[in-house]
């Protein structure tokens, strides 16, 4: 372990904490920036044991594109769900599907599960013990295979490119 990684074990976490601090105090004065940087440096050191995995972002631009895609899908998802809720409830066909996972890292799996929950008509319900399947509940879906293919292609592949 080099001195650099010992002093600054999680650079991304430190930056995020600094940003959060500046948002929380709602001002960008030099003093607050210094305090934010100090907090961003201290907190990861004090909570080192809670972060066993070191996060590496391989493709920052893919991540940005993924966030954009996700925001768009969240808005679309809301109109879909609103239509389903206001429409005829007897015609809804809810199903459970098993989504086989190719992701392995903790962070990528939890991001995928959260993305699935926030996007059209699906909620992730349970991760299997061996971490190879995710149980997903869909509000109204006629064809499970298309849904699995869409999720894998749209969300899982970019996450795999970014984190693994």
């Amino acid at each position: 372990m080099t001195t650099m990684t010992r002093l600054l074990p999680h650079p991304i976490l430190s930056l995020t904490l600094t940003g959060l601090w500046l948002l929380l105090v709602n001002s960008i004065t030099p003093g607050q920036i210094v305090l934010g940087l100090l907090l961003g440096w201290m907190i990861p050191l004090l909570t080192l044991r809670f972060w066993p995995e070191v996060v590496t972002i391989r493709k920052p631009f893919t991540l940005l594109r993924y966030v954009g895609l996700l925001l768009w899908d969240i808005i679309v998802a809301n109109f879909t769900v609103a239509r389903l809720i206001l429409g005829d409830l007897d015609r809804l066909k809810p199903i459970f599907i098993q989504l086989p996972l190719s992701l392995t890292s903790d962070l990528a799996i939890s991001l995928l599960a959260s993305s699935i929950t926030l996007t059209p008509g699906t909620v992730s319900a349970k991760l299997s013990e061996d971490r190879r399947y995710l149980l997903v509940h869909a509000l109204n879906e006629a064809d499970p295979d298309t849904l699995i293919a869409t999720i894998k292609q749209r969300y899982e592949r970019p996450l795999q490119e970014i984190f693994e």
């Binding site: 929950t117 349970k126 013990e129």
Partner: peptide, 30 residues
């Protein structure tokens, strides 16, 4: 929001709540 939804769904599965959706066979064993 997704985290609490996931936990609630897990709790509901644990309590075997009635669902109109069919459960995949493998996951029931699991």
């Amino acid at each position: 929001a997704p985290v609490s939804a996931h936990l609630l769904a897990k709790a509901a599965l644990h309590l075997n709540l009635h669902s109109f959706a069919k459960m995949p066979v493998k996951s029931i064993k699991e």
